[in-house]
């Protein structure tokens, strides 16, 4: 994975609460066995007419927002299904971060595994960013993962919380699997002291 470096990106607002992962990527697109190529189906049911033409009034279809890389959403973003296709689709359409006051647990984990930053802010910052994006599509936000700061256009800096280990992995472009593999001895020791009670091989 590429290390996450500081970046400045255009913001786009979807001020809707509880955006669930079925909206982010509808289930009919989950028959793929790949994680690439999902960007075109991001928010498919909100974005396209039945015949596949883009809906002009949907914010992500508006040309002035075409370059946006930071999505500013309502509360509780990413609730519902555990599908990692949701962050894959967001990344696939060029998003690098999502701003909300809260994220559903599984979505947050999935986003972090893929270098999509879940930026948790207070309601005031969220509302300010929504207004800014709606007033001027060229509004940008600077995101610095190392410092855990967002810099708003007026120069105001706000901090965001992030799991320390996920941050470490993202800054160094490493993933968590390597760390778990390095714990082989400890895993073996746990297994030896906790004999398995089930054996799935006996059932099939």
């Amino acid at each position: 994975m590429e290390p996450v470096i500081p970046f400045t990106g255009q913001i786009v607002a979807m001020p809707i609460n509880d955006i669930d992962t079925d909206q982010i990527i509808p289930a009919r697109f989950l028959k793929t066995t790949d994680s690439a190529g999902l960007g075109k189906n991001l928010f498919a049911d909100w974005r396209y007419e039945a015949d596949g033409t883009p809906k002009a009034d949907f914010v992500l279809n508006q040309p002035q927002h075409a370059k946006a890389t930071v999505l500013v959403a309502g509360d509780n973003f990413g609730c519902g299904s555990s599908r990692e296709h949701a962050p894959w689709a967001l990344k696939g359409s060029g998003f690098r971060a999502v701003v909300s006051t809260s994220f559903a647990d599984i979505f947050r984990n999935n986003a972090l595994q893929n270098g999509l930053l879940p930026l948790q802010v207070d309601e005031e910052t969220q509302q300010q960013l929504i207004s800014l994006a709606q007033e001027d599509a060229s509004t940008t936000l600077r995101v610095d993962l190392e410092q855990q700061t967002l810099t708003l256009p007026d120069g105001r800096e706000v901090t965001f919380p992030i799991d320390g280990f996920a941050r470490h992995c993202l800054l160094n472009g490493i993933d968590q699997l390597g760390y778990l593999q390095s714990l082989e001895d400890e895993i073996l020791a746990w297994e030896e002291s906790h004999p398995a009670r089930v054996n799935t091989l006996a059932t099939a």
């Binding site: 555990s82 595994q113 968590q176 699997l177 593999q181």
Partner: peptide
């Protein structure tokens, strides 16, 4: 869990 984590559990 998500698919990345499915990989973690399969492997470790």
């Amino acid at each position: 869990i998500g698919t990345s984590e499915v990989g973690h559990v399969l492997a470790t």
